[in-house]
């Protein structure tokens, strides 16, 4: 088979089809590489850098880097974990993430990654930026306090829902997701059933009227760390 290539992750030999990204190839082999901005089914973005691995000696985003033959990837390494923790802690201090009353708590991927890495408190000073909430739409709202600029909603809305309702505006610390309309979300075609709604990893793009539906103890990440499903599949298939 000429289109199969071999590479290694943490010393483990892995075969995959040519053209696969490191993240996809790892996942197909039961290795979870933590990620935030990446979402199955939409084009990779490579912006959050949580999936950073050391590929042939260089830190690379696993979601955008294709595997090359003989590539040596380090995923479960002290240096890599330290970088990922730093990124997650920075995401916490640069927004306003009040988990104690957030509807997404327990199902939030940012929070789940912090749990997985055992982060009890970020090492950086909190910025407490002033951010707006777009609450004008009858069924949907955007809370920019919680937004981590992963662009999952933007890409999912364009590529899967086929709508042009969201995009980035401004630059640097003022960069934010904005509705493609003069007066915010209420003038767009966004709907509560859109796949974009399910794409938000945090509590930024949220449906109205349905907060706190799942009780504590039954939420997605209450008992098992994020990525456990991928790792479990691998264990089950090797048995």
């Amino acid at each position: 088979m000429s289109n199969t290539i071999t590479f290694s992750i943490d010393g483990k030999e892995i075969e995959c089809k040519a053209g696969r990204t490191i993240l996809d190839a790892a996942e197909e082999n039961g290795i979870y590489i933590p990620r935030l901005c990446h979402r199955k089914g939409v084009s990779p973005h490579g912006s959050c850098r949580v999936c950073t691995v050391i590929a042939n000696g260089k830190p690379m985003a696993a979601c955008t880097t294709p595997v090359t033959p003989g590539m040596v990837v380090e995923n479960d390494a002290e240096e890599v974990t330290a970088m990922r923790k730093a990124i997650i802690e920075m995401l916490f201090v640069e927004g306003n993430h009040f988990c104690m009353f957030c509807e997404k708590s327990g199902n939030c991927e940012l929070q789940a990654l912090a749990y997985r890495f055992g982060i009890a408190a970020p090492r950086y000073p909190y910025l407490f930026p002033h951010r707006e909430i777009d609450f004008g739409h009858p069924d949907v709202f955007i809370d920019h306090n919680r937004c981590i600029l992963c662009a999952r909603c933007i890409r999912t809305s364009r590529e899967i829902d086929g709508k042009e309702v969201l995009g980035f505006v401004e630059r640097g610390p003022r960069k934010k997701v904005a509705a493609n309309a003069e007066h915010g979300l209420r003038e767009t075609e966004i709907a509560v059933g859109d796949e974009a709604m399910a794409a938000c990893p945090v509590g930024a793009l949220m449906p109205k009227h349905v907060g706190y539906q799942v009780p504590i103890g039954k939420r997605e990440f209450d008992h098992e760390p994020i990525g456990s499903d991928i790792e479990k599949e691998a264990k089950a298939s090797t048995k």
Binding site: M100, A121, Y126, F128
Partner: peptide
């Protein structure tokens, strides 16, 4: 030891920090 989200993150009282 910092106990709870208010001690570790500022928590609910820190909502005033953006104003």
């Amino acid at each position: 030891i910092s106990v709870g989200d208010c001690a570790t993150q500022g928590g609910i009282p820190a909502m005033r920090n953006t104003v």
